[in-house]
């Protein structure tokens, strides 16, 4: 099922059939190697640190300001028809369903996706990937699997952080700056927020994490043509991953929230 989804969304993105096909081949190789022992725990951990922990500062700042601006805008807008009591719900629903997963995915793509493509691309053009193979080490297992797994695991975690921090940012603006009632804000947040909202947001985050990691690894893995090629791979990774995230977001939302 996952295979089919990626195929559909990948095809919608500009890059034509050949890239999508090879990307899917890499995906199936990656999935195959995930289940082949031994698991490379240390490498997975290192990547989780890189993707998750090192992205945290940027994600935190983005989340808090997004929550703040969301509250500010909806408060002034809703005030016109006396619905400022709903600001808490708007912030909570937008963050969990939409902005948490999408924003954290876009930020991580810009940071970790770019660095994955650049690192693997450099390894390709300096023959380090060939060297891995000559040392009887499968490069998909050694390089792609840890990145793919960490992307898939860490993005939902970052999305949760984004959700919470965004809601706190919204609370800060609405209650502390605009002087709305704290109780009313919290009630608006909890009353309209379902577990489903959070949970489907996290499914999206999982999917985004898998996609950006796969696409970035793919771009790096098949880099050609020296330093210039590495540059192209890095840009390509960010552009294609971001497009995939935004386009698939629509379809996933249509499917999850119907």
């Amino acid at each position: 099922m996952l295979l089919k989804l990626i195929e559909r969304f990948g095809a919608a993105v500009e890059r034509p059939v050949e890239g999508v096909g090879r990307c899917l081949i890499l995906l199936s190789a990656t999935i195959k190697w995930i289940f082949r022992p031994p698991a490379d725990i240390r490498n997975i951990f290192k990547q989780m640190l890189e993707i998750g922990v090192n992205s945290l500062p940027v994600v935190l700042i983005t989340a808090v300001f997004t929550g703040m601006v969301l509250a500010l805008q909806s408060y002034t807008g809703f005030k016109r028809f006396g619905a400022e009591g709903l600001v808490g719900s708007v912030v909570a629903l937008s963050m969990t369903r939409e902005l948490g997963p999408v924003l954290s995915a876009l930020i991580v793509t810009g940071r970790a996706g770019a660095s994955m493509a650049a690192e693997l691309g450099t390894m390709r053009v300096t023959e380090q990937i060939d060297a891995l193979e000559t040392l009887a080490t499968n490069p998909v297992k050694y390089l792609v699997v840890p990145r793919f797994l960490s992307g898939t695991i860490m993005l939902p975690a970052l999305a949760v952080v984004t959700d919470i921090v965004g809601i706190i940012g919204g609370y800060f603006v609405t209650v502390m700056l605009l002087g709305a009632s704290s109780k009313a804000y919290l009630r608006a947040t909890w009353d309209y927020l379902n577990v489903d909202d959070i949970y489907s947001g996290l499914i999206k985050a999982c999917f985004f994490g898998a996609s950006f990691a796969l696409i970035s690894c793919y771009k790096g893995f098949y880099t050609k043509g020296g330093a210039e090629g590495v540059g192209r791979a890095t840009t390509g990774a960010v552009v294609v991953s971001s497009m995939t995230i935004l386009i698939s977001d629509y379809f996933l939302s249509a499917w999850l929230f119907k």
């Binding site: 300096t126 380090q128 000559t134």
Partner: peptide
């Protein structure tokens, strides 16, 4: 096999 690459291809990490 052991292989020595033209640019050594050492793992720079």
């Amino acid at each position: 096999f052991g292989m020595l690459f033209q640019s050594a291809a050492l793992f720079d990490s």
